[in-house]
Amino acid sequence: MNDNMAVYPIGSLVTASYKTGQYIGEIVEQSSPMKAAVKILAVVKHPTQGDLHNPMDPDVPFFHQRRALAYQEIALMPVQTIRPYEGFVPEYAESLSRALAQELQQLDRAIRFAQRCREELEQLQQEYKL
Rank of each mutant, 00 (worst) to 15 (best):
D59L: 13
D57Y: 04
Q126E: 09
V79P: 01
A93W: 06
A36R: 01
P47K: 00
V43A: 01
R116Q: 14
E119M: 11
A37L: 12
P90G: 08
G21N: 00
L100S: 12
L104I: 12
R112P: 05
Y23R: 09
Q80R: 14
F62A: 05
H53S: 12
Y23A: 06
A110F: 13
T15K: 01
A75T: 09
Q65R: 12
Y23P: 03
E122I: 04
E103A: 15
E91A: 13
H46W: 03
K39A: 05
D3F: 09
E120Q: 14
V7T: 04
G11M: 11
R98Y: 06
V89D: 02
V38N: 01
P9Y: 11
F113K: 08
Q49L: 10
R118T: 11
Q80E: 14
I24P: 00
F113C: 11
A75G: 07
P90Y: 08
N2E: 07
V7L: 04
Y92D: 00
H64Y: 13
L41P: 04
G21C: 04
K19D: 15
Y92E: 01
Y18W: 12
A16Y: 00
A68Q: 07
N2P: 08
L104D: 14
Q125W: 08
S97G: 12
E73L: 05
D3Q: 12
V43N: 01
S12P: 00
R109T: 11
K39T: 07
P58S: 15
E119Y: 12
I74W: 04
L124N: 06
Q30F: 13
A42L: 02
L107A: 04
